[in-house]
Amino acid sequence: MDYLAATADKKYLMYISQNYSYAILRPLQKEILARGGEVKWFLEGDEVNPDFLHSDESCLTSIESVIDWNPDISFIPGNIIPNFIPGKKVAVFHGFNSGKLNRRGYEDHFNIRGCFDLYCTQGPNTSKRFSELSKAHGFFITKETGWPTLDPLFSKMANNPYIDESDQRQTLLICSTFSRNLSLAPKLYEQIKAYSEQGKWRILMQFHPKMPSELVAKYKALQNENLTFVETDNVLPLLQAADVMLCDTSSILLMFILQRKPVVTFCNQAPGEHLIDITDADKLTGAIDYAFTRPAELMEKIEQFCQQLHPYQDGLSSQRVLAASNELLLSNPALKPKPRNFIRNFKMRKKLNYWRW
């Protein structure tokens, strides 16, 4: 059966709670609309800005309107969705597995919260684990599809605002996660300040949206002709514009490295041969200079890593996600009931102020 063709006349909900989720789901939205499906967005909470919606995108403004609309499938680039929303629920992830551990010492990427019917995984190094978990739990299935977010990354973007062809310097992109224990931002300020004054490289900076406001303000104050601080809901143009990335343990580094570009990390939680990881700030400049040379041995390790992380460079991951989701909907496989999650769903009802039963 052609499961892509089955998109016509079906309803697809984009359930998001962070601004970066717009860029994650828009390639998928494009495929749905091209095949006659209907898409609506629901913005949960106050950390997602409705101003980032495009004029031709339709938003449901209450949980009641979501339930009345009765979506066939919901796509979630986050961790949870209420069980009282109808239809199948598909996890598409908000990033790669960067090796971050939760409070119990487990990799948070593989935390099964009982919300999803389908996990659309990004590559072999996560598919195997999710397949094992699906067999153990029995209430969801796993399909390796690649990540829809990256579809535009593998084609040249027109009019990229972060590329300055008149500036012949190499471009360094600095990104950081918000976690105080993992973030490079409070630890490397003096080094980055010096780089902004020296002008050796053209520097672009972008932080996780949950970064403390005082740190954001501190780095914004460094902006000059050498350093630009960027706030955006779409990081892909930034990734394409840079030659090397400086990062910590943020999963954005994995998106960058898939372009086969070197990454320097500071105190990364899951270092490997594909990264240039340092723990001594005094070695930072040398590591960045080395990365710009793109040494052959490092580039070979990066290629091997990318084949396990996300082998798809065809820009068709959205099609694979859509086909897998439609197959789930139409074949309706015999799965165990999902956990009731009474406490979590009560909290979601309270948060969303929804008490209809």
Score class of each variant (00 low, 15 high):
298 L>M: 10
284 L>C: 06
308 Q>A: 03
264 V>N: 00
280 D>N: 13
315 G>T: 04
254 L>I: 03
299 M>C: 12
239 L>W: 11
275 L>M: 07
292 F>W: 00
244 V>D: 06
307 Q>K: 12
300 E>A: 14
245 M>S: 08
318 S>H: 05
318 S>C: 01
242 A>T: 07
233 D>A: 05
267 C>G: 13
315 G>Q: 00
245 M>F: 03
279 T>N: 15
253 L>H: 08
273 E>K: 15
319 Q>G: 04
261 K>T: 02
242 A>D: 13
298 L>G: 09
320 R>H: 08
270 A>G: 02
252 I>F: 06
302 I>K: 09
294 R>F: 15
255 M>R: 14
259 Q>K: 15
293 T>H: 02
258 L>M: 06
276 I>C: 10
238 L>C: 00
246 L>I: 06
245 M>Q: 13
293 T>P: 07
276 I>N: 11
244 V>E: 09
303 E>P: 09
248 D>V: 01
249 T>C: 07
275 L>F: 14
266 F>Y: 06
268 N>C: 08
237 P>M: 02
272 G>I: 03
300 E>L: 10
251 S>W: 00
275 L>S: 07
301 K>A: 11
304 Q>F: 12
249 T>I: 11
246 L>N: 10
263 V>G: 02
224 N>A: 01
269 Q>F: 11
219 Y>C: 03
309 L>F: 05
222 L>N: 06
289 D>L: 06
237 P>R: 04
289 D>M: 09
229 F>C: 13
226 N>A: 03
216 V>D: 11
255 M>E: 12
268 N>K: 04
279 T>L: 10
283 K>R: 15
227 L>R: 01
316 L>C: 06
271 P>T: 02
318 S>F: 03
266 F>G: 07
218 K>H: 05
